[in-house]
Amino acid sequence: MSEYHGCELPEDLFYDLDYVWVRPEEDGTLTIGITDPAQTMSGRLQKARIKKIGTHLEAGRHVATLESGKWAGGVPVPFAGEVMDRNEKLLEDPHLINIDPYNDAWIARVKPDDPPHALDKVSTGSAAVEALEAWIKRYGVQCMRCSE
């Protein structure tokens, strides 16, 4: 696990090099969430809307929208696909994203339309970490996690 300005950046995930991380699952779906620096920048999240199961999304469209007292934004999917599952816990308590953005607070699982090319526009490993470090520096982020 890499760390930069207090931000955790797991090297085994894929990233859109902005807000989003992607994790391939054994069943062929791709789990989506937002990164540690993104949750820090957003502040304490108060509202989450996640697209319903069965919704089809084109690449770049928002699978979820998140709002805090000081920020609002979307969570884009880096590939086209259908929402197979969503994290219902976040609808009740979006603040979980500020506590555990890479595990409990996953946002949605999406089945890609074109599995062989679903990860073409995301990066992983040391190249991704380096690009995310530049992102963190560009926006002047110092990561903080909420404990509860």
Binding site: R49, T65, E67, K70, A72, G73, G74
Partner: peptide
């Protein structure tokens, strides 16, 4: 969401 983003 858009109105919140625009306001900020």
């Amino acid at each position: 969401t858009v109105q919140t983003i625009l306001k900020q």
